[in-house]
Amino acid sequence: MNEKRMKEEYLETLWYMDESKENSLEYFNREAGEELQPKLLDQLKEDEMISVDADTISLTEKGRDFTRRLIRSHRLAERLVHDVLGAEFEAGACEFEHIVNPDLVDSICTLLGHPRECPHGMPIPRGKCCIEHAQIVESSVIPLDQLEVGETARIAYVYAPNDQQLHRLENLLVRPGMTVKLHQRYPSFVIECENSHIALDERVAADIHVWVSAERHQAAVPRPYGRRRRRHELRHNLRRRQGG
């Protein structure tokens, strides 16, 4: 493994540590194992990517910005391999983040409908394309509220503002891999999943993402991405941030 790769692996480790609220140097050393090269750490410190003192180690603001891109590529790659190819996701993705360019990453992200979690359930850092809701590449995954009434689709991802809600949906079998049929949009969304009918509000419906069926995809005319919907999503994201 060359030095650049190695440094990037260190940065990723620090990102994971940060996600589990961990910043002890001892922990980092254990994670890095025998291969730890103090020289590389010093270089990272010189580049102002990390800050190290007696017993803690963490990413600097600059380091975070850089690593966010790595993590994003890594987790998107996992999604791609897991969702599209149906394969075990860890093997290929390791290398992926060191190679791809930002434009390619954004295209993959758009293709997958801007997923928010990797297959392990960890958050995928958002990119420019997510914030702008780019749909230049026709998405294969769309929110449930963009389905037509009577249409059937397979669920790709389910997001929820809190665990409780995710759990409720899970209990109703609204989960990735299940097939749902949209029965009604107004005054409430009604879907059919595994023989039971479930009423939802538009917020919940927008958080369930489904695969677009093949024939629809071919004939697809991109639906206008209305102002109303964008406003809704902005509000939704705001709420999510405040809630979290």
């Binding site: 039971s196 479930i198 009423a199 939802l200 809630g243």
Partner: peptide, 12 residues
């Protein structure tokens, strides 16, 4: 406070 979303199972 944090409002709840509407998820209601409808009996057959």
């Amino acid at each position: 406070d944090e409002g709840e979303d509407f998820i209601q199972e409808l009996p057959p």
